[in-house]
């Protein structure tokens, strides 16, 4: 911030720590389009065969990448949509509406927000089996959406809290019902929040690994994370070129979203978990 000239030692230390990550990023990109040459750091010649998973099955018995991509997209977008929808209403109720038991709901929300949901996965596994939703996309969508919900409600409540009360009071005085006030006057003020929540829960769904691994292990419900994991696990030859190409393909939406919304994302991740 101020102009002291001795920043070079600092940059040097940072650079040293960052080197492993930068090397990983770099070779992640290089190896995905270079012919594999393990044991050497000089990339082989340009080779697109790493991307063969796009036009052929890597091995029989695996679903096509398009099926898997579709599953992933369906999973991530439906989850994001559900989380946003439920958070939008529940967040408003908790932020603005009078109701009996409100302190308990709020306390419960905070507890759930912090509660490590992954510990419940065994019970959820069994519940899904009992409901007949095991190994279905619907099942993991519902679970993922439910587990993301406390975070979503918390974020949305935060956004609603910043809308001036006077706007709602004015709306009520103008004769509008609370529902109409919410829909026509308050919602437009929290659009940025909606967008942020949609993006974050989409990203979270897109990256999710453990839930599909445990709750939807079948090949017809595979998503990109479990697909990629399965390819890695089953391949005895350590074909990192292929893995990295799949990884590149898998992370494209994440990178794109990251590049567009970098600032907002950092803000939300910085503030979202804060009280």
């Amino acid at each position: 911030m101020t102009g002291t000239p001795r920043i070079w030692p600092l940059v040097l230390i940072l650079a040293i720590f960052s080197t492993p990550l930068v090397i990983m990023y770099l070779y992640q990109i290089i190896d995905s389009v270079a012919s594999p040459d393990p044991g050497s750091l000089i990339p082989g010649e340009l080779d697109l065969s790493n991307w063969r998973f796009l036009w052929e099955r890597i091995d029989s018995g695996r679903p096509t990448i398009w099926q898997v991509t579709f599953n992933t997209f369906l999973f991530a977008s439906t989850t994001a949509f559900l989380v946003t929808l439920l958070s939008t209403t529940a967040g408003y109720a908790l932020s603005r509406l009078n109701m009996p038991g409100r302190p308990y709901f709020l306390g419960g929300l905070i507890i759930l927000h912090a509660f490590p949901t992954i510990t419940l996965i065994i019970a959820i596994f069994i519940i899904l089996q009992a409901l007949g939703l095991f190994d279905t996309l619907l099942g993991i969508i519902l679970v993922k959406a439910a587990l993301e919900l406390p975070f979503g409600v918390w974020i949305m409540k935060g956004f609603y809290d910043t809308v001036p009360w006077e706007i709602e009071m004015a709306g009520v005085q103008d004769g509008a019902s609370r529902f109409r006030v919410w829909w026509e006057l308050v919602m437009p003020q929290v659009k940025p929040g909606l967008a942020a929540l949609l993006i974050i829960s989409f990203l979270s769904g897109w990256s999710e690994f453990v839930l599909p691994l445990v709750l939807a292990p079948g090949s017809s419900t595979q998503v990109l994370s479990t697909f990629m994991n399965a390819v890695i696990q089953d391949d005895a030859t350590a074909d990192f070129g292929l893995f990295k190409a799949i990884g590149m393909y898998y992370s494209i939406p994440v990178i794109v979203i990251y590049l567009i919304f970098q600032k907002q994302l950092m803000n939300i991740y910085g503030g979202g978990t804060k009280g």
């Binding site: 492993p20 990983m24 070779y27 990256s207 690994f209 990629m228 893995f243 990295k244 990884g247 992370s251």
Partner: peptide, 15 residues
């Protein structure tokens, strides 16, 4: 933080 865990760990595995 935002890379999918499967990919992030893959990079470490390669490393």
């Amino acid at each position: 933080r935002i890379l999918p865990p499967v990919l992030y760990v893959l990079m470490w595995n390669w490393f």
